[in-house]
Amino acid sequence: MTLFTENVIEIIRNIPAGKVMTYGQIAVLAGSPRAARQVVRILHSMSKKHRLPWHRVINAKGQIALQDEESYQEQLWSLEAEGVEVGLNGVIDLEKYQYKPSEL
């Protein structure tokens, strides 16, 4: 496993309930600012194995990015269960809910 992958897993693991982070934000913190798509791949392939709170990761527009209806609904319900308000089209207020860790 690469250092970047290890960093991504650790960052996602530490997103608190009721907060979200963006793919790009995670990529920057993990040491590769242009690797948001790699964060998506890591999340997709390693969420179950590492029991990651995958539902707390959204796109830069503050939206749930999943296209599959079942996965979209699961993410929506998981976020709402933690107190995150999800608006129309799966939009989340980043000013209110974005987690900005000072350090890891």
Rank of each mutant, 00 (worst) to 15 (best):
D93F: 02
I64L: 14
I92Q: 02
Y72Q: 01
N14K: 06
P16C: 06
S47F: 07
P101Q: 05
S45G: 09
Q73T: 01
A17L: 08
V8D: 09
I42K: 04
V8S: 05
A65G: 11
K61A: 14
G31C: 11
V20Y: 04
K49T: 07
Y23N: 05
Q73A: 11
R37L: 10
W54T: 01
V40N: 09
S78G: 09
N7I: 08
L88M: 12
L66P: 00
Q63C: 11
I92S: 07
S47C: 13
K61E: 15
I9T: 04
A36I: 02
R56M: 06
Q98T: 01
R34Y: 07
K100I: 14
E85I: 07
P33N: 08
R56T: 03
L43D: 01
E6N: 08
D93Q: 06
W77C: 10
V86F: 04
Q75M: 12
A30K: 01
A81H: 08
V40D: 14
H44M: 13
A81V: 03
V57R: 00
E6G: 10
I11S: 10
I9N: 09
I64D: 07
P53I: 02
W54N: 05
V28D: 15
V40S: 10
L104S: 09
A35H: 05
H50K: 01
V86C: 03
A81C: 14
W77F: 03
Y99K: 00
K49F: 11
V86W: 01
G83W: 04
V20R: 00
I12A: 15
I15K: 01
P53H: 02
V8R: 03
L52C: 08
I42T: 03
E6Q: 08
N14H: 12
L94C: 02
R41S: 14
I58P: 06
E80P: 11
R41Y: 04
A60S: 15
A81F: 12
S45R: 03
L76S: 05
I9C: 14
Q67H: 09
S78L: 11
G87I: 02
I26R: 00
I58K: 01
I42D: 14
F4D: 03
N89I: 12
W77S: 13
I26N: 02
H50W: 14
L66F: 13
V39E: 15
Q38I: 07
Q63V: 04
D93K: 11
Q38N: 15
G90M: 06
I9S: 13
W54L: 11
D93S: 11
K19P: 07
K96T: 03
M46C: 08
R41G: 06
I11Q: 06
V39I: 07
Y23K: 02
I15F: 10
L29G: 09
V84L: 07
I92V: 09
A60Q: 09
Y72K: 04
S71V: 13
I26Y: 07
N7S: 08
A60C: 06
Y99W: 11
L52W: 05
I15G: 04
V40G: 08
N59R: 05
V20C: 03
L79T: 00
I26D: 12
A30M: 10
V28R: 03
G83S: 07
T5N: 13
I42F: 13
K48C: 09
Q63D: 15
P33Y: 00
K19F: 06
